[in-house]
């Protein structure tokens, strides 16, 4: 019983951490300037801290679900993506070949054909 309780609490803690991480990134996406982000981030942190001492697992589950639904509702439509990552501005952008390497566009035909 206590083991299942412990695993359930661990899973809840992980969900909360990931939710906080995504919400914090989303704050940064919505913030136009860095100083606006700091204010938003501390407000977000306060909302998480407000329910820090809730003990009942079912209540926690419900709160996490509410939080995730709220996060999904206000997610940024065009989030910042690190340039090399899929969807980023440098994704699959390859360097030019070094000098001395010639690309011959003969479409598979050799010289002696």
């Amino acid at each position: 019983m206590s083991l299942t309780y412990a695993t359930r609490r661990a899973a809840q803690k992980e969900r909360v951490r990931i939710l906080y991480r995504r919400a914090l990134k989303d704050c940064l996406n919505w913030a136009v300037h860095r100083h606006l982000f700091y204010q938003d981030a501390s407000e977000l942190r306060e909302r998480f801290e407000a329910n820090k001492n809730v003990e009942d697992p079912d209540t926690i589950d419900r709160m996490i679900s509410t939080g995730e639904a709220h996060y999904n509702k206000f997610r940024h439509p065009d989030p910042y993506i690190v340039p090399w990552a899929p969807g980023g501005s440098k994704f699959t952008r390859n360097p030019a070949p070094p000098t001395g390497i010639e690309i011959v566009y003969n479409y598979g035909r050799e010289d002696n054909d």
Binding site: E14, R17, Y20, R21, K25, R45, F48
Partner: peptide, 26 residues
């Protein structure tokens, strides 16, 4: 606490221009 850890990992991501998947960052 755990939320501070999340913030530090996010700061590290910005410092090194990384995008760490959520499960690994955790």
């Amino acid at each position: 606490d755990s939320l501070d850890t999340v913030e530090i990992v996010m700061a590290l991501e910005e410092e090194f221009k990384l995008e760490i998947p959520d499960k690994e960052a955790d």
